[in-house]
Amino acid sequence: MKPHPPPDSAGAPVSVVIPCYRCADTIADSVASAAAQTRLPAQVILVDDASGDGTLDALHTVAATYPPGWVVVVAAPVNGGPSRARNLGWEHATQPYIAFLDADDTWAPRKMELQMDALEADPGLVLIAHRMAVRERGAGPVPLRPPVRVTAIGRRRFLLNNPFPTASVVLRRDLPFRFNERFRRVEDFLLWAEIGFSGYRCAKLNQVLAYWHKPTYGAGGLTADLDAMHRAGREVRHELLRRGLVTPAEHWFARSVGIVRRTRRRLLLAMRSRQTGVAS
């Protein structure tokens, strides 16, 4: 996707936060997808998480292709992981809303327009997300599937799994929460759950408006990755229980769902491995 200067038009009051770690090959596409929005975000913040290679130079090169000040480059002094990088970007945000985008993901052109329409129609919403899909880089956006619907995400939904992919989320900057920097896995789910379980209203659009350009977490077939993900999920559930955001009954329900999901994924991995062996 070729970068181009943002148009001079009424935009969205949104700061886009993108944590960057050794992402020189993909960051231009990510920023270009923000610049291609039908309703342009007011600010893009690129946070270099002490990559130690040529990433920081690449970020400044990308920033220079846009009007001065639209892309802000922030350099973290030490590597702290995605939670710390996102929090650092949050500190530099100037707009009422923050959107998150990862340095190897991209957005569909109408993402910001549709999310801001929903937020402006319902000022009580503090967070809105949408669906995502794995898509080959450069393949073009998935067509919308009307009607566009906004669905409230209630307490029970957070007990099942993470309903909000990180690159789909737009939230209010003034929320009294941040990413927990002790967590390097499932840190996004912990934040969304803290917001939802604290009584704030969240919602989700029924459209695919952002894309992963590599297999989703665990899809590579590595059992160790799945085990690490499930351990992190267990830690998140304990953290929510410790802070009194879920009841013991909700905790055990969520734990039971997690065990079922882990068993199912192990079976799918075993089947995939067996099929691969037969094919070879």
Score class of each variant (00 low, 15 high):
Tyr21Arg: 13
Glu181Ala: 03
Leu269Thr: 04
Ala24Ile: 01
Val14Arg: 06
Leu59Phe: 11
Tyr211Ala: 00
Phe179Gly: 05
Arg155Trp: 11
Gly11Ser: 06
Tyr97Ser: 04
Asn206Arg: 12
Leu160Tyr: 12
Gly196Cys: 02
His130Ser: 14
Ile195Gln: 11
Val73Gly: 08
Thr276Tyr: 02
Val31Trp: 07
Arg155His: 14
Gln115Gly: 06
Ala118Pro: 06
Val150Trp: 04
Gly277Trp: 13
Arg110Cys: 04
Met271Tyr: 03
His230Pro: 02
Met1Tyr: 01
Val62Asn: 07
His238Met: 14
Arg265Phe: 04
Phe197Trp: 05
Trp70Glu: 04
Ala121Asn: 12
Asn161Glu: 13
Ile259Ala: 07
Thr61Gln: 12
Phe158Pro: 01
Leu209Thr: 00
Val44Ala: 12
Leu40Phe: 07
Trp252Leu: 15
Leu222Trp: 11
Gly221His: 12
Phe179Glu: 10
Thr26Gln: 05
Arg272Gly: 01
Asp225Asn: 14
Ala108Val: 02
Thr166Asn: 15
Pro67Ser: 12
Phe177Tyr: 15
Ile195Ala: 11
Ile128Val: 15
Ala228Cys: 10
Glu113Met: 03
Val257Phe: 13
Gly138Leu: 06
Glu120Cys: 04
Ala210Ile: 02
Gly244Phe: 05
Thr223Gly: 02
Ala133Val: 04
His92Tyr: 14
Val71Leu: 04
His213Cys: 02
Val72His: 13
Arg172Cys: 12
Ala10Asp: 11
Ala63Cys: 02
Val236Leu: 08
Glu239Met: 15
Arg261Gly: 10
Ile98Thr: 05
Pro215Met: 00
Val148Ser: 05
Arg149Glu: 15
Leu119Ile: 14
Arg156Asp: 13
Leu190Asp: 15
